[in-house]
Nucleic acid binder design. Structure first.
Length: 557
RNA sequence: GCGCCUGUAGCUCAGUGGAUUAGAGCACCGGACUUCGGAUCCGGGUGUCGGGGGUUCGAAUCCCUCCAGGCGCGCCA
């Protein structure tokens, strides 16, 4: 990357300058090369002189000038200036852009990838919705986010695993409530006068499930007691359907998990009990009032948390402790990223505390809480609750506006921002959608490449990139050259939402180039060949970035 | 009450120490094509960056405080 090249030049200049001044220890660890927002300020800029000024007590402009004096020569650096309060601005010859295109063409689908994360194993766990209903607008947000984040981390060299944690254990109270809801609907369909519990799952799909049970089994389960065991029996009857549905919903979003991890398996293998015993033995857990508590209060949580209820049933924390042991110890992930919905917010401190109590460095775990999605109908916000039944499923949304638009919409916003989802607006905007703008740029390039195959006047001569000097060509070249740094940054900051923005800017540069620079021209084959190379490079980068987002790159629309 | 997220153009949002012009999309108004796809391009912005205070060469960005909206605070997940 050109940024690394410039940073290395500056690092050498810093070392030379600092040894002159006997300040060898003042070298900044990370030299930031940034792109000035104002093009008049050069192709790249660096603020290292101002950082140094604080440490060695000298005028930043003077330091900047001295750094420039010590800067090793480099072919692409045309001139370097001190500007403003002490910026070092680099003005490069257009050759660096042509080099960037050559690199892009050579690397193809790998362009944008790097080895930053070399051989580290990272797991991204996301969605992980309880198997009690379809994935819907409220809990789907982590899907495209996690999937794209995983793509990004893989692109910068991590060994990535995508995981779905299936809370399928009978100790999960939600399953009991859900099973009870199915049971109640079943009995109602059989004509029994039974009231539906307020805290139950009110969605129509529960009635449909119950109807399927009636169709399949008739009255066979009429006399099952309406207690916890009965509820779990009913959950067992529908469990496979629920899990299949989750698989279908994820597939519909274009997400393929490497591992569907079953909570029940943790229990069956005795791992939950083993972790509880170990925590008791190490003193991280203790017994009080018939329950077992984890000393999370000593590790930053507000208070200690219950691991085992007084009735002997383990809580979800117990499962999660065992699950974490499996992730960090058994499977040996260097980093684990948990992506959770806003309802799990209060759970982060206790999970961190639990990891600390287990002796797992908390820097190895990252918790990303995405913010609420509100579904708006007109001006009325509806709260999304599976239990209340007023849900819009992810598959309804996908059928409505398409998978590509769904992924793009969810990805566009930072996960820290609340997201208002107005279905009418989404439907209406799908024709004026930024995703089509990006995809259309891709199809236009495909169209040129198709056309070029039958253009006999092009011959076999290689395109001369130095012919590319039109402002719209240079602007497009610049976006192509910026791409690898953008991927790296989006991955390091765990910020997939940067991608749709970059993709739109790239598409804009493509459309401008397309409008103002005729590519295929029988009267100018040399220029045609050069521009075709730019078309090929742009085509590669658009396809790559759409690929990272899990959005199709169509050849025709 | 405590904690977290958010507050930037009419609307939806980027920008989270950097450059005396704070950006984009949508919407609205006007314009562009005998050649590669018009789902395109070009032009049109008087914004208390929620208010106030502070930190410094420099703040939408960091700190404090207040206001508004959202979410969370269970031996549920």
């Amino acid at each position: 990357m050109i940024q690394d090249r410039l940073a290395n030049l500056l690092r050498e200049a810093c070392l030379a300058l600092l040894s002159d001044r006997e300040h060898g220890d003042a070298l900044p660890g990370d030299i930031q090369i940034e792109t000035p927002s104002n093009p008049a300020h050069g192709d790249f800029a660096c603020n290292v002189a101002m950082q140094l000024a604080g440490q060695i007590e000298a005028n930043p402009r003077q330091i900047a000038q001295q750094l420039i004096d010590h800067l090793p020569a480099d072919a692409v650096v045309e001139r370097v200036e001190v500007a403003g309060p002490g910026f070092i601005n680099f003005y490069l010859s257009p050759g660096w852009l042509h080099d960037g295109l050559a690199e892009c063409l050579e690397q193809g689908e790998n362009y944008g990838c790097s080895d930053f994360g070399a051989v580290q194993k990272v797991q991204v766990e996301f969605v992980s919705a309880n198997p009690v209903g379809p994935i819907h607008i409220g809990n789907a947000r982590g899907g495209p986010f996690g999937d794209t984040l995983a793509n990004l981390l893989a692109a910068i060299g991590y060994e990535v695993e995508r995981e779905y944690y299936l809370n399928d254990a009978p100790t999960n109270t939600q399953l009991q409530i859900f099973g009870g809801s199915v049971q109640t609907r079943y009995l109602q369909l059989l004509g029994e006068e039974v009231g539906f519990p307020e805290e139950g799952y009110h969605g129509d799909y529960v009635v449909e499930l119950a109807q399927e049970l009636v169709d399949e089994y008739g009255e066979k389960y009429r006399d099952v007691p309406r207690d916890t065991e009965g509820a779990l029996l009913f959950f067992d009857l529908v469990e496979d359907k629920m899990i299949e549905q989750l698989h279908r919903d994820c597939a519909a979003m274009g997400i393929s998990f490497d591992v569907w991890f079953s909570e029940t398996k943790l229990h069956e293998a005795g791992l939950v009990q083993a972790q509880i015993d170990q925590l008791l033995a190490s003193g991280a857990a203790y017994a009080k009032e018939d329950a077992v508590w984890l000393r999370t209060g000593q590790y930053g949580d507000e208070e200690d948390r219950v691991l085992v209820r007084s009735d002997g049933a383990p809580t979800y924390i117990a499962s999660d402790v065992a699950y974490a042991a499996d992730k960090f110890y058994t499977r040996g992930f260097d980093r684990v990223i948990y992506i959770w919905g806003p309802d799990h917010f209060g759970y982060v401190p206790r999970m961190k505390a639990a990891l600390a109590a287990m002796g797992i460095g908390i820097e190895r775990a990252e918790f990303i809480i995405y913010q609420t999605v509100r579904f708006l109908e007109g001006d009325e916000p509806l709260s999304l609750s599976k239990r209340r039944g007023d849900i819009v499923t992810i598959r309804e949304l996908i059928e409505d506006i398409g998978r590509d638009a769904v992924r793009f919409f969810f990805l566009m916003r930072s996960v820290d921002a609340h997201l208002d989802f107005d279905l009418d607006l989404a439907r209406q905007q799908s024709a004026e959608n930024p995703v089509y703008y990006v995809q259309y740029a891709h199809t236009r390039l495909c169209s040129i490449l198709r056309e070029a195959e039958s253009a006999d006047y092009l011959g076999k001569v290689d395109g001369d990139l130095s012919l590319l000097i039109h402002p719209d060509e240079l602007a497009l070249l610049r976006k192509l050259a910026d791409y690898p740094a953008e991927v790296l940054r989006a991955a390091q900051e765990l910020a997939p939402h940067r991608l749709p923005h970059f993709a739109r800017e790239l598409a804009q540069a493509v459309h401008q180039f397309y409008t103002n620079c005729r590519v295929l021209d029988r009267d100018n084959p040399a220029m045609s060949r050069a521009r075709l190379k730019l078309v090929a490079g742009s085509h590669i980068v658009l396809a790559n970035i759409l690929g990272l987002m899990g959005i199709t790159a169509p050849e025709k629309m």
